[in-house]
Amino acid sequence: MLGDVLTVWLQRCDAVVFDLDKLNVFVGLGLIGSVMMLCVYRARRGGARFIRAVPGLQAVDDALGRAAELGRPVLFTTGLYGVDDVATLAGLNILGHLASRSAHYDSDLLVPCANPVVMTVAQELVKERLTQAGYPERYRADTIYFITDEQFAYASAVCGLMQRERPAAAFYLGSFAAESLLLAEAGADAGAIQVAGTADVSQIPFFIVACDYTLIGEELFAASAYLSRDALLLGSVKGQDLAKVLIIAALAAGVLLLCLDQFFGCHWGTWFASLFTVTEAL
């Protein structure tokens, strides 16, 4: 209905300024975005701020404390990808918290980077967080450095670093490919407490078997809210959960309607499924 009205209106405009085949994507994006912003607004006004315990994030302080006790460094990597990757950005958000906490525990933080832009952002982020935490003198640019953007050259360099420096804690939070298991096994061999998190479904099993704690999928994106307890960030996590409830409701409705199609020969399920179909690949 809405699509027909818009088509007529746009035909009058004599120019196609909106791809109507993607109207459902636009509506879905707007709906989920609105739910999230509403939750952020509520959180700003002092709404519910509960977030369930995430074992991998609860272990962060233990891992940093252990590094301080052993006098060994902490290793952090966001993986191979650049700042255009949303998981890398989520990893960088966590790096800020780790930097201030490791400074508090007086531990060295090593951040070998596979991307020079990520390295620059990481340096700025750590410098800013250390200044905010009251440890500006703890910032050392040479601990956040570029290695190479070649996948396995990077993996061997980080494995070698772990063999030499024997970090007490290793954090792999970002986007990873086949190098995930190489890094995690090298970290296990060095005796580090390992916390990993990635959005890549095919790499999660490798981290689960080789690391002590793994943030699965969306937990990586919620980590900065969990660690900072910032009201706005917690609000956005709440929004994510509400959006997930909407998606589960849509899935349940789709299953029910498709079952009704089978039993009564109607086409409600097919019509409902067509609402979520995108003609052009995303």
Partner: peptide, 25 residues
């Protein structure tokens, strides 16, 4: 689905300036 929502939420947070990792926070 969780990753897609998490990615969308992070994008919205960055676009609206709630989270600014590119500015060192």
């Amino acid at each position: 689905i969780g990753v897609a929502l998490g990615g969308l939420a992070t994008s919205i947070k960055i676009l609206t300036g709630i989270e600014k990792p590119y500015l060192g926070g």
